[in-house]
Simulated assay, not measured.
Amino acid sequence: MNLPVKNLMRLSFGAVLISGLGACANNSAQPVMANSPLTGPVNTGTYPHFTPDPKGETTQFTPEEKQALIARTTAAKTAAQSGPSADPAAAAKKQADLQKLIKQQQDDLTAIEGKKTTP
């Protein structure tokens, strides 16, 4: 009983195979999608761009604004490099505070080391 079923399966497989190969051999002169509005790739001579050109998020600087910004940043840089204060009195006060702090730290260090007792 199994033998005829196997033969039947082989014959049906062969029939499907032959019909499939016959469909591949059918060469029609007209393309399958001849009525499609898409005609395929066209050589336009330019590189394809798939994204729109980026736009600036803000308005761009004018040359005058650019020079003003450069001058402002250069002035700020020069001021920052010149020193902490242009006022001589403030600089003298800061120097006196640093000298006082150094003296205090030296006194504390000698007290910690036991060379001098604190009053």
Rank of each mutant, 00 (worst) to 15 (best):
K66H: 15
D97R: 07
K93N: 12
Q81N: 07
L98F: 09
A80T: 04
A90L: 11
R72V: 02
L69H: 06
A76Y: 03
A92V: 09
K55M: 15
I102E: 13
V32H: 05
D97F: 07
D53M: 15
A68K: 09
T74C: 00
P63K: 07
T44V: 06
S82Y: 01
K77I: 09
Q105H: 12
P37W: 04
P48V: 04
L109V: 10
T59K: 13
G40F: 03
A92K: 10
A71C: 00
D108R: 12
K55H: 14
P52R: 13
K55R: 14
A75N: 08
T51Q: 06
Q67M: 14
N35V: 03
I70Q: 09
T39Y: 03
P84A: 10
G56H: 12
V42S: 12
L98I: 11
Q67I: 14
L98E: 10
A79Y: 00
D107V: 11
V42G: 02
T59H: 03
Y47E: 13
K100Y: 08
D97P: 01
P84L: 09
R72H: 07
A71H: 01
F50D: 02
T74D: 12
K77P: 00
E57Q: 15
T73N: 02
Q105C: 08
Q95D: 13
A34R: 04
P63D: 14
L109N: 12
Q60A: 15
N35L: 12
T59P: 05
T51C: 04
A92L: 10
G45M: 03
L98S: 08
L38W: 15
A76D: 10
P48G: 04
A34P: 00
P63L: 09
T78W: 00
T74S: 07
A86G: 08
F50R: 01
G40P: 00
T110F: 13
Y47F: 13
T39V: 15
D97I: 10
D87V: 06
K100V: 06
A29N: 09
P52T: 05
T78C: 00
I70P: 00
E64P: 02
T110Y: 12
T44R: 06
R72I: 05
T59E: 15
